[in-house]
Amino acid sequence: MELSPVFFYVFGALAIACALMVVLAKSPVTSAFSLILVFFAFAAIYAMLGAHLIAALQIIVYAGAIMVLFVFVIMLLDVTRDTGEAGKPHPILMALSVLAAMSLLAVFVWAFKNTGTPAILGPFTTEAITAAGGNTQVVSELMFSEYILPFELTSVLLLGAIIGTVAIAKRQMSAARKGGGK
């Protein structure tokens, strides 16, 4: 699977433009919808690299589930403007954070340009994956055989988080009911 440069630049530019919109947009709804477009552009790039499963999961999990929740909260609270309590940060602080971000980017670019070690190819080359029946087969087979324990542990961790959330919400609810009933 060869990554077509034209589409890479199209979706890469879309991702960068939308990521800037997320940070710079005045209205939180615009930020949220731009973030969805960022995820979508990422998914397109994954799909062009041949990682169809990752692309589909990216859209199902991030764009289809998590962002719906974000948008819901923003709309229900009817946040129309950015209402940071501190207001605008100090200009020196702003300049410093931009500088820090830029230097991080510079380090990344330098590191990717100048590393002498060639990319280490694992056993999962594009040809090997196609021969084994495609992405979905390979990932699910590994997940449910070799990596079954980490996978199950992760799901138990998530379950614990969900139960914890419900317990905390319930305690607050019953406290509110006791307080409101009097």
């Binding site: 499963l53 764009a63 289809g64």
Partner: peptide, 19 residues
């Protein structure tokens, strides 16, 4: 290769239009 996962992924985006 992802088959109907693609359908579910894209169909879940339709909800944004309604919102």
């Amino acid at each position: 290769n992802v088959g109907f996962l693609y359908v579910f992924a894209i169909a879940s985006l339709g909800v944004y239009g309604l919102i």
